[in-house]
Design a protein around this nucleic acid. Structure first.
Length: 421
DNA sequence: TCCAAGTCAATAGC
DNA sequence: GCTATTGACTTGGA
């Protein structure tokens, strides 16, 4: 999205008003729809547009996002969750009509919102939408309407049913995305979803502990030993790194909010998160594998023949296994993992270090690259608790591993290293 | 080509 | 029927 034509503080101010204060009402303008062609059909035919743009006629969502002041992502998701549960509204309905996202994405987003300053423009979009939705005085009402309409349509379909020739006529009444009503007929031969066995995951985690960025050769070896496709191994590493990173964001925020305890005038997430964390539902699940370990689910692939766990490729280092945290995580929201996927280069390019500095200016402007020090500088006040201290220590160690990895890589490429020590 | 970020969608479990 | 999890995919940057 191009930069806004508006300049200076004025635009920011008006935007701030738009995003932060209750807006007039959600318009039904199609302008608001800035969906990609591939977007779920959700919004197209629906009265509720994903974005209220009233007062800012032609502003696209991208423009809004670009000009948006820093939002409290945790506070926003917390409120959204409250509103949804209070009104018995589902994530699917909300996601598809308001955010243009699927249920799974919404769940993820609500459970593990990233801090604003860590989000790309695209990643900020749903939060801006959520904020705008929260600001809409009729938000619940409209969603309820949608729900009713969906139900109606469903009933109608059921009655007139079996003659399901209905070419998916979701029309006004929301869409039945739910059960295989996929308009794409030709997608017959879907390959079954791969479900990794617990032993496989364990092995991969151990490998990750040793090398978060395994070489192609290592990947190949892992794949062979675990009898997985290399692409599966690659994907797993990508996903794992990414999800661990996300857990760390949450850790940061939690630690930051603890250490700051009302000290800052930062407009952003800290306070919201503090409250949020008490729910204990957000960050202890994903990588801890609390629900997953020990139960291979689904029609999984043939399990690793012969080799399985005994064939695990790499020895577990003493403090590895995020899972060990999982066993205790029920009682705490402390991070489930003991490693960090941070890569200095990425971080320095894309994120302005830690939220604890909270000097982030409103909006997604250019952000100061963090020094290595800042990458390490998890708020020490959090050290008041030993467990957390240990966790952070582990993470720092893992950080070092990553940095070493990066340094090695950089050295081998002879690319200039710009990090400051 | 590799990676991060964002997302989808299948699936499990409640 | 709902939410959470997670393997796979898409996009974009370097």
């Amino acid at each position: 999205a191009p930069e806004s034509p508006m300049s200076s503080s004025e635009s920011v101010k008006s935007l701030t008003e738009l995003v932060q204060q209750p807006c007039p009402a959600i318009e039904t303008s199609k302008e608001g729809k800035v969906q990609e062609p591939g977007d779920p059909p959700a919004s197209d035919s629906q009265p509720t547009t994903p974005l209220p743009l009233s007062g800012h006629s032609a502003l696209s969502i991208q423009e809004l996002v670009a000009m948006s002041p820093e939002l409290d992502t945790y506070g926003i998701t917390k409120r959204v969750k409250e509103v949804l549960t209070d009104n018995n509204l589902g994530q699917r309905l909300f996601g598809e009509t308001i955010l243009g996202l699927t249920q799974g994405s919404v769940s993820d987003l609500l459970a593990r919102p990233k801090p604003w300053h860590k989000l790309s423009l695209k990643g900020r979009e749903p939060f801006v939408r959520m904020q705008l939705w929260l600001n809409d005085p009729n938000n619940v009402e409209k969603l309820m309407d949608m729900k009713r309409m969906e139900k109606k349509a469903y009933m109608k379909r059921r009655h007139s049913s079996v003659s399901d020739s209905q070419p998916c006529e979701p029309s006004s009444a929301g869409i039945d995305y739910s059960q295989g009503a996929s308009p794409q007929p030709q997608h017959q031969l879907k390959k079954p979803r791969v479900v990794l066995a617990p032993e496989e995951k364990e092995a991969l985690k151990r490998a990750y502990q040793q090398k978060p960025y395994p070489s192609p050769k290592t990947i190949e070896e892992l794949a062979t030993q675990l009898n997985l496709k290399t692409s599966t191994v690659i994907n797993w590493f990508h996903n794992y790194r990414s999800r661990i990173r996300r857990e760390l964001f949450i850790e940061e925020i939690q630690a930051g909010s603890q250490s700051q305890a009302g000290a800052s005038d930062s407009p952003s997430a800290r306070s919201g998160r503090a409250a949020h964390s008490s729910e204990g539902d957000s960050c202890d699940g994903t990588l801890a594998e609390t629900t997953d370990e020990g139960r291979p689910r689904g029609p999984r692939r043939s399990s690793p023949p012969g080799s399985h766990s005994s064939g695990e490729p790499l020895e577990a280092p003493p403090n590895s296994a995020p899972k060990e945290d999982a066993s205790t995580s029920a009682a705490s929201t402390a991070g489930p993992t003991g490693e960090s996927p941070y890569r200095p280069k990425e971080s320095s390019e894309k994120s302005p270090s830690l939220p604890s500095t909270s000097s982030t200016p409103a909006g997604p402007g250019p952000q100061k690259p963090p020094s290595l020090q800042s990458l390490f500088s998890f708020p020490e006040a959090a050290g008041s608790k030993n467990t957390r201290d240990n966790t952070l220590r582990k993470k720092k160690a893992a950080n070092l591993n990553n940095i070493i990895h990066r340094l090695e890589k950089a050295a081998s490429r002879e690319e200039p290293v710009e990090w400051e020590f």
